[in-house]
Design a protein around this nucleic acid. Structure first.
Lengths: 237, 237
DNA sequence: CTGTCTAGGCTTGTATACAAGAGAATGTCT
DNA sequence: AGACATTCTCTTGTATACAAGCCTAGACAG
């Protein structure tokens, strides 16, 4: 797929550490964005050539990605982009809904006035962008909305964990965007979340947020059926 | 991971990959057990000599530990066992309480009859061991009790995440054991959790479990004051 | 005596060389 | 012809060599 796409010598003579971090993040983005599809083989030498470094930093990047669960490294058989089973996907969505709900609960209790205003602004941005009918831009605005909620939890660990899970699922959620009427629903749900948080209603915020990010029942079925086959692993091995 | 599917013959009796994993796990245990104290420097060459391998696998192990948050790698300055701030510790305990509560909630809804019996057995084992006044053994029985709850969630991702956080905090919780009366309290709390789960009371199970693992207020203060100074990082950096 | 600058050693980060296993391709035997 | 064994190649895993930055010790000036 990306075999012939050799970007000519990136050549960042600035900071060598920068290069290593950039490597991991770059591969990360390629996975999140779908440029690297699940099941795709990650050849160490090939990546090394592509990025103009040796195999050592490539291996280090791959190891970190494996720790994050984004790729799978089978001993002596190399690394492939992780594909997950339908069960795993459902379970991860389930946990994510509860973690986002937890974030909303904390945020409702802890947000400072300035943060509450930022939440309203982020929500308003979503409303404005929804009118443009540009799913990509709305996707980004929605992401920021959730980031504002994370920041309001005043709990960096919860923030980080939730964000990691959200990122991990992002390549799957992407396919949800194009469902008709999804954006309108999403806005209404945001509205309920904002109202509850501004009112300091922790339970209400949690419930509203859980409903917003919840992907189960028919919604889950629809999502799974829209996924390209590579994204899912056959359950029985 | 333990989703019921049996692994298709792991084989590899002498797999060299095994050695690298053993390396990571060995360092992990040394950190959890307190053999390696927070702030302690992890010299790559030294570890390589100690384990009889070259620096390469050592570096790979360190990178994985860094991904798990157990150590901290500052560029060009080497790795040290992670010490966290009081704020971070409080936040992690907070999240852990909610995640364990979530586990209990799921378990109350989903445990099969056989699993409920296993829960009762695990609880009984705790009661029996408490009489022996052996904190270490009780600690282990308590761990198993929680593992049974995890298994009852039927959500491998939640299970794995919660376990990882629990392990991460284990070296801090260890100091809590020796508080007088802690074991008796713990048993009473287990009792409430078991009762709620057996009754299928999801909310009650969550509340009881949160109360059980919750470390805040005076309990948190006591815990922090019992920690050796290395375990905590000075807040201002 | 103290603060600052500099040079050296020692550590990490990267590249390359080497060993060893997995998979493919080919040849042979039934 | 088909199935099986064997070799061969290509990949990963590990070791070692090399480059580059940080820390410290020591000297010198104020």
């Amino acid at each position: 797929m990306a075999s012939g796409v050799t970007d000519p010598s990136i050549k960042t003579p600035k900071d060598s550490r920068r290069r290593a971090e950039g490597l991991r993040q770059r591969l990360e983005r390629e996975i999140f964005s779908g440029a690297l599809l699940p099941g795709e083989r990650l050849d160490e030498s090939g990546l090394a050539r592509r990025f103009g470094v040796s195999r050592t930093p490539v291996r280090e990047a791959l190891l970190q990605l494996a720790s994050a669960g984004l790729i799978e490294m089978r001993p002596r058989q190399g690394a492939v982009v992780a594909a997950i089973t339908v069960q795993q996907l459902l379970q991860m969505f389930e946990v994510m809904a509860d973690m986002e709900a937890l974030c909303a609960r904390y945020a409702a209790r802890r947000m400072a006035p300035a943060e509450r205003q930022a939440l309203e602004r982020a929500h308003k941005a979503c409303v404005d962008l929804a009118r443009r009918r540009d799913p990509e831009q709305y996707y980004e605005a929605n992401r920021i909305f959730h980031e504002v909620v994370y920041a309001g939890t005043r709990n960096a660990y919860l923030e980080e964990t939730t964000r990691a899970l959200r990122n991990r699922l992002s390549s799957y959620r992407r396919f949800q965007l194009h469902q008709p009427g999804r954006v309108a629903n999403s806005l209404a749900e945001h509205d309920a979340v904002v109202a509850a948080i501004l009112a300091g209603d922790a339970d209400g915020a949690a419930t509203a947020m859980r409903a917003h990010v919840s992907v189960q029942g028919e919604v889950f079925t629809d999502l799974v059926s829209m996924l390209p086959p590579q994204y899912l692993q056959v359950t029985a091995s």
